[in-house]
Write a protein that binds this DNA or RNA. Structure first.
Lengths: 351, 351
DNA sequence: CTTATATATACTCATTCTGAGTATAATTAG
DNA sequence: CTAATTATACTCAGAATGAGTATATATAAG
């Protein structure tokens, strides 16, 4: 085990990378999220191409210029600021995708390749019209993810039957019990079939399952074999598709945010300076796509020291006025700053 | 809010990115982890340069060739396999770093830029010598992270005094109480000063804190202003440095793995097919750098249905023979597959 | 063979955390 | 004034958690 032998291979590999055939362009994609009127909204820019994907939303994206920006995040903030005038609060890197064939190819010049880095950004609700961009309820892209009014009908009416067909199609191809079970298990775990509970954090897994089952328009666009068969059968679109792999990035953002909200106080990035506990709850429920138990939610938020009273009351319609609270920034300097560990309320979520 | 206006800016930006000045090379870095003899080991390749960083370990890395590999992960698996003959089990993307100035620059040709994507990979312990590579106990790079024998002396003897100086240095520069408090709070939360508990998952935050305080040799290499002053003062090295930003990637891997082990059954990727519960515990403790309560650990692992008995006994030295268990793969198909939610044992951890 | 020592494993117990209610207070709509 | 509506406080059983104690089964020493 001498030091020398490894060096040539590793180093020369790195040097070989310098050549143009391995050069890629970094695309920075931002899933910019806000919540207003109990709906999580995602910032989209319109996209029109003659290739059949016209009208599909795209996430705002821009290239990373390494000469201009020291880090990827700085690069992202810079062009988002420039293009949207939004001030981003929380920003988090999600994932870097390098897949060939997961976005329409016309953007790639021959011999060049785009690697896309996805970011999640949160911003406080704000109604100004952004030039050319729009806020879209993210459940338009993921209608199966919103369980606030009970199980979304699209699951039993469309998704489960189509997936069952996909499961049995594999059964024909590979008749061994084991690998058929795999597809069935994936379906069960993702969509909560056969008594498995719904897991709000599996948004990405569900998207990927639907994609690989060929049930999404993106899969058809990418020419996935499964998808072609279904296109012929006139399967209705499952949610609004998005350009490139942007719906996948959005799914990643949803999963990450739904997980993060439970152990870090990120929900407050979406709230105004003062808010009632019920407003906070509505925001959280919007993101999770679930209802939570109101009294326990209060207890949790107050016991964790996440908020403090302002003394002011909210002039609301309806019943008794609610007190307004503010985020206790100090928690960030106390213990590892907790989030909103909450369990879905059985009473309404599973109706 | 028409659709048109945004299109030119977004699209043309993407097209502009095609030009060579924005092209970058993707470097794939692998933090390949195993555990043997109660020590977490990281695979390193030697690196010798005449620039003063000779002898620093490097993580194995290779370029991503988009023409050859469909996804980043496939590219990574491919050259790791090629270079090390290791079979990777679990692989997870960690983070994509684009920072200029966080690695010695000689690798970058003028006008070109390396963006590095870090990966965490787990592999079962295996003693064969790998050509040119070596397994290194990861605590050699992070001596402050191993609390299994009580608080590591380096914290009180070196780190805390140096950080205090760094805190007070800011107090001079910006005398306002608020921003001085920021440095102090960072120190407190990271290193568990003033009654704050040690958080094993903050490995990355601690590394970044030490780096930005200029206490690491990498900071000196990168010419960080803080670091220069300290080099003069003959500060002893805090842990073994690594080439480029590889120690940061390793810190990211540690943080991610320490977090993940608590909610996903990844520890079993590091275990042989059959193992005793104490062996499993030792592995987990090695990764966390903490002791856990033995009886409660057993209860947790068994109640969660993570293991099943094999009936065979372990022929061990010492006391009563222990039963061997195996991982219950079925948990993956049951509920969202839990991990090893464990609390550090107060009795020995804080000695 | 007996005893000390070491480890494995089972069982206990107080405390806290959770999930799910009930009870009561303060508003507005009629 | 009453019903409806929302806010907030309080209760309670069961599960999970942290920390032991008790007992079983081996090896090593004498």
């Amino acid at each position: 085990m001498t030091a020398k032998p490894a060096k040539p291979s590793v180093q020369s590999a790195a040097e070989a990378a310098m050549r143009a055939d391995k050069a890629v362009v970094i695309g920075l994609n931002a899933a910019i999220v806000t919540v207003s009127e109990s709906a999580p909204k995602i910032l989209v820019v319109p996209h029109d191409e003659a290739d059949g994907t016209g009208g599909w939303d795209a996430l705002p994206f821009g290239p990373f210029n390494p000469l201009q920006h020291r880090t990827l995040e700085i690069g992202l903030r810079s062009w988002v600021q420039e293009q949207t005038q939004l001030e981003l609060g929380y920003v988090e890197q999600l994932y870097t995708f390098g897949d060939r064939g997961r976005h329409s190819l016309e953007i790639e010049a021959p011999g060049e390749h785009v690697v896309s880095v996805g970011y999640l950004a949160l911003t406080r609700s704000h109604d100004e019209t952004l030039k050319g961009a729009a806020w879209r309820d993210w459940y338009q892209h993921f209608p199966w993810e919103d369980w606030r009014d009970g199980k979304p009908p699209i699951i039993e009416q469309a998704i489960v039957p189509l997936l069952r067909e996909w499961v049995s199609r594999q059964a024909e191809a590979t008749p061994d019990e084991l690998s058929r079970g795999k597809r069935r298990d994936r379906m069960r775990l993702c969509f909560g079939v056969d008594g498995v509970d719904w897991d709000d954090e599996k948004a990405l897994e569900r998207y990927e399952l639907l994609y690989s089952a060929g049930l999404l328009q993106e899969a058809a666009r990418d020419g996935r074999p499964n998808a072609l068969a279904l296109t012929e059968k006139n399967v209705p679109p499952l949610g609004r598709p998005m350009q490139f792999d942007h719906r996948r990035i959005l799914a990643t953002a949803m999963s990450r945010l739904r997980a993060k909200i439970k152990y870090r106080p990120v929900a407050f990035e979406l709230m105004p300076p003062a808010f009632t506990l019920y407003e906070l709850q509505k925001t959280v429920e919007a993101l999770l796509g679930l209802h939570v138990h109101k009294q326990n939610f209060r207890r949790l938020v107050e016991n964790a020291g996440l908020v403090e009273r302002t003394g002011r009351m909210s002039t609301r319609t309806g019943g008794r006025p609610a007190e307004q609270f503010r985020f206790r920034r100090e928690v960030l300097n106390e213990r590892p700053a907790p989030g909103l560990k909450l369990a879905p309320s059985r009473s309404r979520a599973n109706s």
